[in-house]
Amino acid sequence: MRGFRISMFWWVVITLAIVYSVVKWAIPALSREITTLPFPLPVPGTLMLFYMVLTIVALFLMVTFSDEGLESFSRPIRRLLRGDFGQPTAYLVLLAVPFFVGWQVYEVVVPKVEVPVSLRIQHPSSNFPKKFEEMKNPFSNPTDEAITAFAEAAKEGEIAFIEQVVGDIERWEEESEPDHVLEFFPTPAMTALLGEIEGGEIEPATAKAALIEKNLFEGRALYAMNCRPCHGDSVAGDGPMADGFKLRPINFTDNGTIETIVEGYTFWRVANGGPGLPTEATPWDSAMPIWKLNLSDEERWKIIMAEYDLAQKTPRIPETH
């Protein structure tokens, strides 16, 4: 048995090393295993301090519990200092330890140069006007009048499109000579409408679905013209302009973005852009334009409609009181 015993001194050293390694490397490694994220969970610096102090207190109690323990702990140190392992070793340790401590003290007191970190709140609500909270997108929820008017127009084959898409549709009409202008929509909603027009009787539900489809088409075109350069054609915040901005354009396919806010909030954000943000959302870094300066309410609502559709997300429902 005696052959396996190690002195209290080495006990203390090994225990400290094990506790340190567990906190420093094992916990982060384990956290990566558990979370399967490509980075470890952060271990706060105070945690290390806390564990090390606890360990040292426990070891101190154990060492000073008996005279034998204290003796077993201090003997190797005494022998080293006395020169039992050679005088050069003793002097080396006597010099190395103070310099190591000095270096550590220097590291602690030297002024650290750190880039100012801006903690940013993504959906600030401190200046969000309440009147937007329950706003509904009039183009994804068309009124009965709008639906009737659209059905009438569809019957006549005289659909009023926004001017931005007219050119492309006209060239298509010239080339394809269709029976009805809406034939370029390869979607079930529009096919159903065209079928009913032929039958002579249009159901309001069919007309509504088709009108939403038409609004969505215009919204997508406006998105491609205005928003795509930054937010990308797959609404992933990765457009051709995106890499130039430190604060990257929002990725709408992310679960934490447009899904977690009400439609009225999106409308308000698109209208007022970066400069309309409160300070906690670092407006000075945001490249989001103040779109109310360039786009009409109608254009912005249609864009928002397309955005949610392309991202396959639905807005949060306003809370009713």
């Binding site: 350069p229 930054c230 302009m241 995106a242 890499d243 130039g244 901005f245 970066g274 490249a287 989001m288 334009p289 103040i290 300066l293």
Partner: peptide, 8 residues
């Protein structure tokens, strides 16, 4: 890195 001025 710079990019096109698309803010205004």
């Amino acid at each position: 890195r710079l990019t096109g001025q698309v803010v205004v």
